[in-house]
Amino acid sequence: MANKLRTGAMTRAGGKWACGLLALLLSGGVAQAQDLSLENARISLLPGDMPGAGYFSLQNDGAEDVTLVGAQSDAFENTEIHMSMEKDGMASMHAVPEIDIAAGQRFEFAPKGYHLMFMHRAAPLEVGDDVEVVLHFADGQQLPATFEVVSPTAMH
């Protein structure tokens, strides 16, 4: 009888502990996602199947540094992190595997610098449309964001 009771109490305590851990993990996850935020997210889109450029301002309000390792959108077959460079009057662009954003820092994806290169749209898009994009980080975090489609003439 006493044994049974104890077991029951143990189980309840164990259940509580598991729930607490789950709650901790969940709140931890939520808090982490809230530490990262995107502002002014937009895609400058060219006509037809020409690639688009994604620009935004990424703020890391967390206590930890994060590393952006990629982005994905169902609206495009391929999304890469790119960087444009200008040197001695020559412009070039290349893929960038990852970008570190230190705790408390803001990182700008802006014209003539870092951009997400969106290639091969899955369906036609128009200026004013919203595109869902998920940013991926090295620690497994994912940051979903809505990008607005804008005309390239709005970027200067």
């Binding site: 400058s44 060219l46 020409m50 690639p51 688009g52 450029a53 790119h82 444009s84 200008e86 412009a91 662009m93 014209p111 003539k112 610098g113 951009h115 290169m117 969106f118 390239p152 003439t153 709005a154 970027m155 200067h156």
Partner: peptide, 9 residues
Amino acid sequence: PDVCPTSLA
């Protein structure tokens, strides 16, 4: 998608 459209814009 970046430098050229920005320059033309």
